[in-house]
Write a protein that binds this DNA or RNA. Structure first.
Lengths: 225, 225
DNA sequence: TAGATTGTTAATCGATTAACAATC
DNA sequence: TAGATTGTTAATCGATTAACAATC
């Protein structure tokens, strides 16, 4: 308050820079709040959220702080207000159309998952380069040839691309997605992807969590190395 | 080497305690190595792995260090040797049978994903409490009533359970899985779960990565707050 | 030997946990 | 006012990045 801190830090806080760690928790709070709302409760304290999710109340308050929603001490937050704030913060108050590239095993699973609507996302079209897959439907979505992605991107005004192709192809696909005007890429290939600075990328490696679990299990079943 | 460090640290290193951060990277290396092997290359350096995955070579070496595989300086690692070491470390040299609980949206997607075999895991059976779903098949797997899980667990000798049910039910399901003799739980419900100390849990929240991406996208499309 | 790459140890960075004064 | 809960700041913890001597 009175001690002037390192200026670089001040700037970092001042602009709306995203703190990934906090953002990752917001969907959990939102999910819980939806349940609470369904039961017709008006207010909820950070304590109660924490208890339900089995985490520290401190973290709940810290994560929520970025939203700018204020609570009444002794009472807590207004459920609807907090829900709306999270949805607005994540941009989940509007559905984002996404183009899914890759109709293989993972692509098929993603196309078949009907829960993305809850997270403000809709898979608008599916693409592949394999002529055997092109023309078929995947969970009711038609598979287009990847050549057509630029025109489809323009038609749908999609902002997001989802990469579910083999490692080697991932970077190349990303390049084309950028050319097609895509601004955000959700990458399921276990490789880091290079994109221009105005494009945002998030890589999700499904196998990572399973690897940790498998290792722990191997240890538990067979201790002493 | 000569300075005696804090004893607690020494113990922590001494026993085979898992470092989650390193373990999370191993599937990526494995995936790349499988490609390299397919092209009939015998050796590979940490530098090359790092280049292909677009990360720092230092990290590759550090992560690989836990495996106890040694490389020849100036040449690198023997591909097959390194692959086998990773698979053994993760217990992926044997397939683990898993019981999937929840035949909803996410459960259906997981049951439909045919790629888990690559990660040493097989979904042996699917369970739900909804009578409409019980008896149906999900991607060729029959859906059993959750009541039957204890007996099925014994028949299949499954060690792993996968939770894909709504938040509120997650803890309860976990309790039953433990009673059924399950040792490892892969939890897709965005809640922290309590289990006895001899049971291992890993929670994967699909929405977390999407939340970060959505927020960054919202920022990119609409800067200045 | 010389060049290249390893493997380990130290330094930075970020995220989680703890503490506590401010507020309703 | 008293009790309860917030919101912010400091302390701990772990993970990533950097550095460098050891090795083939």
């Amino acid at each position: 308050m009175d001690q002037p801190t390192d200026p670089s830090k001040i700037i970092k806080q001042a602009d709306g820079d995203v703190c990934p760690a906090a953002t990752r928790w917001l969907p959990r709070y939102l999910c819980f709040l939806r349940n609470v709302e369904a039961v017709d409760q008006q207010c909820v304290s950070a304590e109660r959220i924490a208890a339900a999710l089995n985490i520290e109340p401190d973290r709940v308050r810290q994560d929520i702080a970025v939203l700018g929603v204020t609570a009444r001490a002794g009472v807590g937050f207004v459920v609807v207000e907090l829900m709306n704030a999270i949805e607005r913060y994540l941009g989940w108050d509007n559905i984002t159309d996404a183009l899914l590239v890759g109709a293989g095993r993972l692509g098929a699973a993603l196309a078949g998952y009907t829960g993305f609507a809850q997270y403000g996302m809709n898979i608008a079209a599916v693409f592949d380069i394999d002529d055997h897959k092109v023309g078929q439907t995947l969970s009711g979505k038609k598979v287009h040839h990847f050549d057509r992605i630029v025109s489809v991107a323009q038609e749908t005004h999609a902002h997001m691309g989802i990469i579910a192709v083999p490692n080697e192809a991932a970077q190349e696909i990303a390049n084309v997605l950028v050319l097609a005007g895509i601004r955000a890429i959700w990458n399921f290939a276990p490789v880091r992807i290079n994109v221009p600075p105005n494009i945002v990328v998030e890589t999700t490696d499904l196998a990572a969590g399973l690897a940790v679990l498998s290792r722990k299990l191997a240890d538990a079943l067979n201790p002493r190395r």
